[in-house]
Nucleic acid binder design. Structure first.
Lengths: 253, 253
DNA sequence: AACGTTTTCCGAACGGCGTTCAGTTTTCAC
DNA sequence: GTGAAAACTGAACGCCGTTCGGAAAACGTT
């Protein structure tokens, strides 16, 4: 009885301590993101965070061993939220309309990038001065999720897309064993060519967004949205999901 | 006579002073680029440059009003050299082979990006911590050169490419007046649709390079070169410069 | 050849940064 | 209640960009 009570108290107090710790950790991350939204990624500094939270700078080291560890955590959080969002946009489209699902995915990505350009920098660019990315990448889990999601989308188009692809052959040995295993486990019916195509699609759409975010489009093109839509349109046509020259049912944007 | 001599002496000494100044300026820039190649863009600091040159940090301010001004100059230099390079690669191909010229341009860009990833970050990404880009962009001249060169390349393919484009109409009013005037002055025969297509092509190829440079490809794809070649191949096919499914004469890479 | 001005350069300083460390306070388990 | 572990503080170190007063050199003019 006593033992039980004690143990429950222990659990309770441990729970309390852990809860406080989790709470402070969350506050640190939230403060960091707020500072970023107010002053860009460079505004994320341990000292500024500590100042905002009325604590000393060195106290933050009880929660993150180093600034880069905090940045890595932020990248993971932001990236995960991004993947949640594009997946939600994709799943809002009917499962039997692969063109709509693909376009929704990429529209959601651009919308997010425009809404939170600093988040985009954090995830896809050079995050912050002097940050060195850990081995295996800063955010392996969300990036794997994004990769699988995109491969799945492209794979759905593969039957129509395959004959339209350039005669460049790909095999599983072109990819790292980790990726090949991952894909074959989750998406056993996908071919290496579809994976390669997914990466090419990724580059295509990421490129326009990156140019826009990094300011290479605006000086010439006041509204890159139309350009993005054209590329999106060309994309689904090139994948054979939509006949050329016709409006596709997934417009409505 | 005497007047003439005096004036010549003046010119000489003025020339000497200016020469010394230009020399020191060049040394500062060279040192900055060396530091960047050794330690990344974050290694570019006025203090480090001064240290390397055996002078005080404040002395650098006689040559650049601020660190950002130095960065801006570096961006211009690096960008200009990049444009020189891609233009040279393009011009090494016969004028009557637009597919080869286009592919040479983009191959040269990727080769340069891989050889000098920090230069790529400087020109196309977030250059350096806390750097605020001046109004009108950090490097309007080289970026205008790159834009015109690319538009010219795409315009050469426009007759074949136009019917293959998605039915998204563009007009000169979609672009800033500066760009529209610039293009109509230098390339009077180019249509707005061709310009839009040029930007889309830019995004396409920039995207793959950016993903590779920022480390989003390597963890999954040991050799993104094949992917890039496939995209390049698909590009010239989609522009109607090469019939699909056949090897094009511009391979040899 | 000498004078006054402009340019160049130095050294110290300010506030910011990440990080470390010795020491203190608080919290927790027993 | 006591000892250990965790959280926290304040000072310090070396880095950064930038400013400022003053010294040194180079320069144009007389």
């Amino acid at each position: 009885m006593q033992r039980c009570k004690v143990s429950s108290v222990i659990q309770q107090t441990q729970g309390r301590r852990a809860r406080l710790r989790a709470q402070t950790t969350a506050e640190i991350k939230a403060t960091a993101l707020r500072l970023m939204s107010e002053g860009g990624t460079d505004a994320i500094s341990l000292r500024a965070i500590a100042r905002e939270m009325d604590m000393s700078a060195s106290a933050v080291y009880s929660y993150f061993a180093t600034r880069d560890e905090l940045i890595t955590t932020l990248i993971n959080d932001v990236y995960s939220e991004l993947v949640d969002r594009v997946e939600a946009a994709r799943d809002a489209c009917p499962a039997d309309d692969p063109a709509a699902r693909l376009q929704a995915w990429w529209r959601a990505l651009r919308d997010w990038a425009l809404a939170e350009p600093d988040g985009f920098r954090l995830v896809y660019g050079d995050p912050v001065a002097g940050y060195v990315t850990p081995v295996g990448g800063p955010a392996p889990r969300p990036s794997k999720r994004a990769c699988l999601g995109l491969v799945e989308l492209v794979a759905a188009a593969w039957p129509q897309a395959a004959p339209r692809q350039p005669p460049v052959e790909f095999s599983w040995s072109d990819f790292t064993p980790e990726l090949a295993d991952e894909i074959r486990r989750h998406l056993p019916d996908v071919s290496p060519g579809a994976v390669a195509l997914a990466f090419r699609v990724w580059g295509r759409m990421y490129g326009l967004i990156g140019l826009e975010i990094y300011g290479h489009l605006r000086p010439s093109l006041p509204d890159p949205g139309a350009l993005y839509e054209a590329e999106l349109r060309d994309l689904v046509v090139s994948l054979g999901l939509v006949p050329p020259g016709q409006a596709d049912g997934a417009a409505g944007h």
